[in-house]
Simulated scan of single mutants.
Amino acid sequence: MEHPQRHQQLRRLSTPRSAALAGVIFAVLFAASLVLLRSAIPDDPFAQIEWVSTGRARIGIALTLAPVAGTAFLWFIGVMRDSLGELEDRFFSSVFLGSGLLFLAMTAVSMAIAGAILMTAEEPGVTTNGLIYFGRSLMLQVSNVWGVRMAAVFMISLATIWFRTRLMPRWTAVVTYGVAATLLAVVSLSLWVTLVFPVWVCLVSVLLLPTRGRSPRRRTVSP
């Protein structure tokens, strides 16, 4: 006798329309995290380490928001892949996915270093000026040198996909190329530079929201 559950019809998974909001959520939370860190960390890399104590609350909130923002960014990557559907190209999609995951990894490492600075500062007799200076410099090198450039590669790969598939307006790809080139060329240890990326993600998400009701797999592909 066959089990009754075998007669149940399987359903194809589909991306919920609300998932397109993931980019907006990432942009808001990640930008808030960066602003909190920027307001707590001085511009001078050799400033007195009192900023660790005075900015502890802001840094702590930033470290709480960052993992949630990272999760939303993973959803954003999924939404972008789903929007491509059968138009997806293996080469550009590999670069797009790899650079996005590397950006997320660099951000996670940078935030972990910031958390380590806070924990180290709590231990009496352990904290030294040199240790705090090193941790701060390492955090900014990871996020603003490696992370920002991975974000730029992520943007370039997506812009190229948009040009070839016409999935997004042409001006969106042009603007994306321009912003990405700026991020690749500018070497800065200011956290304000990183804010460009969440602003771009928010813009793309807002433009993508009205199209979430249409299935990309049914679009006509022109030669």
Score class of each variant (00 low, 15 high):
Ala180Asn: 05
Val148Phe: 01
Met168Thr: 01
Ala180Pro: 08
Trp146His: 09
Leu191Lys: 01
Arg164Ser: 12
Thr128Ile: 02
Ala185Thr: 13
Ser143Gln: 07
Ser188Tyr: 05
Trp146Gln: 08
Leu140Ala: 05
Val142Ile: 15
Thr165Tyr: 10
Met155Ile: 15
Ser137Tyr: 02
Leu189His: 10
Val175Lys: 00
Arg170Phe: 09
Phe154Ile: 05
Arg136Tyr: 07
Ser143Glu: 04
Val142His: 01
Ser190Lys: 12
Thr194Arg: 05
Thr194Glu: 10
Val153Trp: 14
Pro169His: 07
Val175Glu: 03
Met168Lys: 13
Leu191Arg: 06
Thr194Cys: 01
Ala159Leu: 10
Leu158Lys: 05
Ser188Thr: 09
Pro124Asp: 12
Ile156Phe: 08
Val174Met: 14
Met139Gln: 15
Val193Trp: 07
Phe163Gly: 02
Met139Tyr: 12
Leu140Val: 07
Ala159Met: 08
Val186Tyr: 09
Val174His: 02
Gln141Ser: 12
Ser143Phe: 13
Val145Phe: 14
Met139Val: 00
Gln141Glu: 11
Thr160Asn: 06
Thr172Trp: 02
Gly147Ala: 06
Val175Met: 13
Arg170Leu: 15
Gly130Glu: 11
Phe154Leu: 15
Ala152Val: 06
Thr194Met: 08
Thr172Cys: 13
Tyr177Glu: 03
Tyr133Asn: 08
Ala152Cys: 11
Asn144Lys: 00
Val126Gln: 12
Ser157Asn: 08
Thr127Ala: 14
Glu123Gln: 10
Arg164Pro: 02
Phe154Ser: 13
Met155Tyr: 04
Val142Asn: 03
Gly147Asp: 09
Ile156Thr: 10
Arg164Trp: 09
Tyr177Arg: 00
Ala173Phe: 03
Met168Asp: 02
Ala185Phe: 07
Thr176Asp: 01
Val142Phe: 09
Ser190Glu: 14
Ala185Asn: 03
Met155Gly: 08
Met139His: 15
Gly147Ile: 04
Ile132Val: 15
Ala151Ser: 14
Leu183Tyr: 04
Ser137Trp: 02
Thr160Leu: 15
Phe163Ala: 07
Ser188Arg: 03
Leu158Ala: 15
Ser137Thr: 11
Val179Thr: 08
Gly130Trp: 02
Ser190Asp: 14
Trp192Pro: 00
Phe163Tyr: 15
Leu138Trp: 09
Ala173Gln: 06
Leu167Pro: 00
Gly178Asp: 06
Arg170Val: 14
Ala181Gln: 01
Val193Gly: 00
Leu131Tyr: 01
Ser157Val: 06
Ser143Gly: 00
Tyr177Trp: 11
Thr165Val: 06
Thr160Gln: 12
Tyr177His: 03
Gly135Glu: 10
Phe154Pro: 03
Met139Cys: 09
Arg149Gly: 11
Arg166Leu: 13
Asn144Glu: 13
Thr176Leu: 04
Ala181Phe: 11
Phe134Met: 07
Leu131Pro: 01
Ser143Tyr: 13
Met155Asn: 05
Leu191Phe: 15
Ala152Tyr: 05
Thr160Lys: 06
Gly147Glu: 09
Leu189Ile: 02
Thr172Arg: 00
Leu191Asp: 05
Ala151Asn: 06
Val174Cys: 04
Val174Pro: 05
Gly130Gln: 11
Ser137His: 07
Ser143Ala: 10
Leu138Gln: 09
Thr127Trp: 04
Met168Tyr: 11
Ser157Trp: 09
Ser190Gln: 13
Gly147Pro: 12
Asn144Asp: 14
Trp146Pro: 00
Trp192Glu: 11
Ser137Phe: 03
Thr172Pro: 01
Arg149Glu: 08
Ile161Arg: 07
Ser137Val: 07
